[in-house]
Design a protein around this nucleic acid. Structure first.
Lengths: 213, 213
DNA sequence: TTTTGAAAGTGGTCTGACCACTAATCTTTC
DNA sequence: GAAAGATTAGTGGTCAGACCACTTTCAAAA
């Protein structure tokens, strides 16, 4: 009979230990040697468990310092999922379309919430007039302000896989359109904001920026 | 300067090897000792990489036999998502919201395309009247008909992870609402379809089906 | 007081040694 | 010759010990 693998026990024991001792993100976890002694197993077994958790982004290890519980924002499960989802369904068109789905949903969410009244918009408008304002920053700001971290994470991944359509900095000709979007959001006019946003992004995608390069 | 960790290299080299040599699910992977020699690293390093992949369910190891590429259906990513992240309620909220984003986007896409004229809708209406029509089938049909396979796949994963709100079969009281949705789609009236859809799903989620159980 | 450098502790890696288990092969027995 | 049993090679599972590279600490030297 195959015995259950020890390193899997270690994984769950670690999880219990973290909960019981109320270890919080950023806190240090006992060293590998300590854990090996405490749990009465070899250090290599401990390491197999820790490396598994590290691949998931649940812990961070820093040579010479120790092992630390990772910030939940650094969890890599979604990334790992992405590498497998996008294996077979990596039609570029689907990726772009799905990005757009998340972007418009973000605008919709912002318009429906108090975020539309934040002072962020004014400062965004000012940064827009300055030099070196990257297109991606504009969209990312919207995704962040939507308040849905999962959606933000998915969007970020799609951007990496689908080739970033928001590469490069905002050209003077684009500014009026972007300002219209900001204005519509402040007015909580989702419909207009989304229409203008789609007008902007479709030029970037279809025209390969030819119009504004 | 901290060097990149070798076991991570191994992980990606393994992925490349699997693709290049066209190893398929169920096939055997070279033994740990072979891999160690071929990649010029210690066996323990190989094991750290393999154990990580095993925790994800990407490979299976059988003592005395060897290591095998796992069937994609055995991938444990979703399960891991649940065990490690589900505690945070905000995350669960994000999952539900992101599901909704994809669902409404699907309805929007259908209404804007020729799919709204397909004979599917009539047959769907008929199945709705029959017995044993599972709620999930209804939504999945919409996701499929949207034509965005990536969006469908993301939706499917979110459903597993976030607890399926569309569990159980359609109750008689729900049918009018669902028929309204179908009708609105056929009329390409996305706004009405989405409003009614949200009305339906919000009852399922918030009310925990109490109203219709 | 500041600087330096030695020491202790940590993760990263390798080696070699067992153990438990499987499957193929060989040997014995009928 | 065929079936049953024993042997053996190969595999993953685990452990112990040894280095290395790196960080932090703290006491000694300037």
């Amino acid at each position: 009979m195959n015995q259950p693998k020890r390193y899997l026990n270690i994984v769950s024991e670690m999880r219990d230990m973290i909960r019981e001792q109320n270890i919080r993100p950023g806190d240090r976890i006992p060293s590998e040697r300590e854990l090996a002694e405490k749990l009465a197993v070899g250090r290599s077994t401990i390491r197999e468990a820790l490396r598994s958790l590290e691949l998931l982004g649940l812990i961070e290890t820093r040579r010479g310092e120790g092992t630390f519980l990772a910030d939940p924002r650094k969890h890599r499960l979604v990334e790992l999922l992405a590498t497998f989802i996008l294996q077979d369904t990596k039609t570029l068109e689907d990726v772009r379309e799905t990005m757009c789905i998340h972007e418009t949903a973000a605008i919709q969410a912002i318009c429906a919430s108090d975020a539309s009244k934040l002072p962020v918009w004014e400062s965004l408008r000012e940064r827009l007039d300055g030099h070196e304002f990257i297109r991606e920053d504009f969209v990312r700001e919207l995704m962040v302000l939507s308040g849905n971290r999962l959606s933000l994470k998915i969007w970020f991944l799609l951007k990496q896989y689908g080739g970033n359509p928001y590469d490069g900095e905002v050209m003077p000709e684009e500014r009026p359109l972007l300002k219209n979007i900001l204005h519509a959001i402040e007015q909580q006019d989702a419909e207009t904001a989304i229409r203008d946003f789609k007008a902007w992004s479709s030029v970037l995608i279809k025209g390969e920026n030819a119009q504004w390069q």
